[in-house]
Write a protein that binds this DNA or RNA. Structure first.
Lengths: 224, 224, 224, 224
DNA sequence: GATGAATGAGCCTTCATTCAT
DNA sequence: GATGAATGAAGGCTCATTCAT
């Protein structure tokens, strides 16, 4: 049940359901803030409660368990990430190259490509090694993205003998996205998101020589 | 001071110094084991001591603090990783393409490309967001590798107009290594290290068309 | 905020505030008991909690830190001691000799002159050498008493050439109080508090010959 | 066995016995230093050993137990203190007033009246409440001094009706010594030892009017 | 005799969770 | 529903003492 549903629900506890959802969202937000600030292992229920200006009891009341709260946070981030590139595809035309270019561009949108979110995501990812639940969510999120990428590359490589295989192309793009993400976030950024985006497009032009013109158009659209 | 130095040191407590070093190495090993098994945040001094079959006091005695121990573990992993690709360069000839190919191959050697080490490394990396010390070590390790890669790519791209820029090439390679590492380790491996290695070589052939024959030779050497 | 204030505070968590204060007082009491029984350095949070029949967490919850708790205990004793002689002055008339006599008598009241309180006070005092906070509280408490004593002696010595200076008189009285305190508490008491009190009055009669009659009256009042 | 005896002991381990004694003295000295610096409860075997530049094992080897070492330290301080006033008596003539004056003066000699020694002494004294051994040593040391003082006062008061009783006189003197000690040591000293000494003599002149001239002589001897 | 690594009990503190109010 | 006091199980660390070298 999300906010929209909650608002629709007729009577008399409608406001209660909404309030509960808002509270949950607030707590998820506070948790993200704390993980960003203190790190995953230093994030305590007390700190979350303090940041949200509520008592510790409230946190447990809404999520039963700290672990369950963290899982919700991870799912929230996963959905935010996935929604982002899916909505990019949605507005694209049918041509695979358009979809691919828009996916790449969406990866550098400030909505997902910002220090806080990515830092928190990596924190979960680093801990996932020993947490099956995290591993599952992280893995699934990655897989969905990877297979979409591979699917698009396969269409783009069909009948083209002069370049790399679809698998290589997909991996190269995904790898670069990861690497550039890191570069954008940590350190004093060597690249702006826009520069990073252009870098990926450059590689794509090499791998998909037939689409060079289209890619070039997207590259130019970044200038504005 | 490492073991070699300790052994050379003439008297009188030579054996003491060695024993102390061995104990430290043992504890670092046990710590890696525990991080792999339980995760970074669930790794306690008690578990480390138990795994090493010593008392908790010993751990503190040799490393003063749990945090200092973890830092040593991270530095150990960092050195192991860096030594690995540096020694690969050392045996290569002068030609940049040889160095690059050997670096790539070294990245898939079982010494560093194994579930345990990489999992532990990522655990530190995920926590580095809120730990300046980790961030520094991780960052420096990465930077050294990146700049070496970029340097080699720059030499390979010099005078070649038909392909991507050196920066793009270096990023693409590094990104793929990261991505393929992940793929090799987590999940039921989609690729064997050898397959992954070939995949990288394929991309390199596209980016460095003049070196195609040399790369092909290295690719074939993988079959044995 | 003390209990009185807490009780006055209108709603809504009045009882909560009171309960919290009572708990703090109880814990301070238990701590004094433990210090008396085990000594300052052997007083652990566990023992305090056990004596108060609560969990260890409660102690930390209310005082954050063992050191902070001990500081509160010291301040409590300091206030108890200071309040005692100040209220003695309050009920006295204007004449300095009356105030002085009542201060001296108050020093032997069972409220402050009992084995437990004084033992605990000396424990803090002995540790104050290396604890700036203790030193400050102890010093301030002593200073306030000393200067009051000196002030009264100065008034009593004004114009009297035949005796000692005010400084000597004040020191002699304070020194005797300290010494007699010790005697009353430790060892099998050589003197009862009443005898001790008389002894101090005897010295005062010598130092303040003009007040002999008044002092004599106070001395006789001890007999009942 | 002290150093003198040890040196006399013929052969062949004479030097060993001496060395052992010197080591013990060194360790006692280091312990005093540590107590002064860190406080009694923060003085650990490790710190003592470090200060003495020996290993921890040596400390235990020579004193069996930390507690036994501390006891020796206390006895050392006690003896130093007692020896000080006893040797003062030894050089005095037969007259009680001479002995008394010299005892008082010895109390302000830098040998015993220095921040470190007195601070450490009070540290033991504060802990004695819950340590029978300390209590015994401290009590005995005090008692010996008190009774000597009382004995001298008794002789001085014999046949003198105009002043206080011997008990009061003895207590007043001892109390003032304690109080002035404190004043000399802690705080920015209100009095120099010499001023303090004079203050005690002033009180004595009042209590022993027949000895006024003699006391006056001692008082003047302080000026040089 | 000396060294310092090793032990293990105990200490203070943290923290997720419970529950009376 | 919300609050915050209370719980109790760890956790990291200290430290006196032991003991092989």
């Amino acid at each position: 049940m999300d906010v929209a549903e909650a608002k629709k629900s007729t009577q008399p506890h409608r406001s209660r359901a909404i309030q509960s959802l808002l509270r949950k969202q607030q707590l998820i937000g506070s948790t993200i803030e704390c993980i960003d600030q203190f790190g995953l292992s230093q994030t305590t229920v007390a700190k979350i409660a303090q940041h949200a200006r509520v008592s510790q009891g409230v946190v447990i009341f809404h999520f039963q368990t700290k672990d369950l709260l963290l899982e919700q946070v991870l799912r929230f981030l996963s959905k935010e990430y996935t929604d982002n590139w899916k909505s990019a595809i949605a507005v694209a035309g049918e041509a695979p190259i358009d979809k691919l270019c828009l996916i790449v561009m969406s990866a550098f949108s400030p909505k997902v490509c910002n220090r806080k979110n990515v830092g928190v995501w990596y924190a979960f990812w680093g801990a996932s090694q020993s947490r099956p639940t995290y591993q599952e969510v992280c893995g699934q999120t990655d897989n969905e993205f990877s297979s979409t990428l591979l699917c698009l590359c396969t269409q783009l490589c069909k009948g083209v003998k002069t370049s790399v295989s679809a698998e290589v192309a997909a991996m190269a793009i995904e790898g670069m996205l990861d690497g550039l993400w890191q570069s954008c976030l940590f350190e004093e950024p060597k690249f702006s998101p826009k520069e990073a985006n252009k870098t990926v497009f450059e590689l794509m032009e090499l791998m998909f020589p037939l689409q060079k013109n289209t890619i070039e158009d997207y590259k130019h659209s970044l200038k504005s």
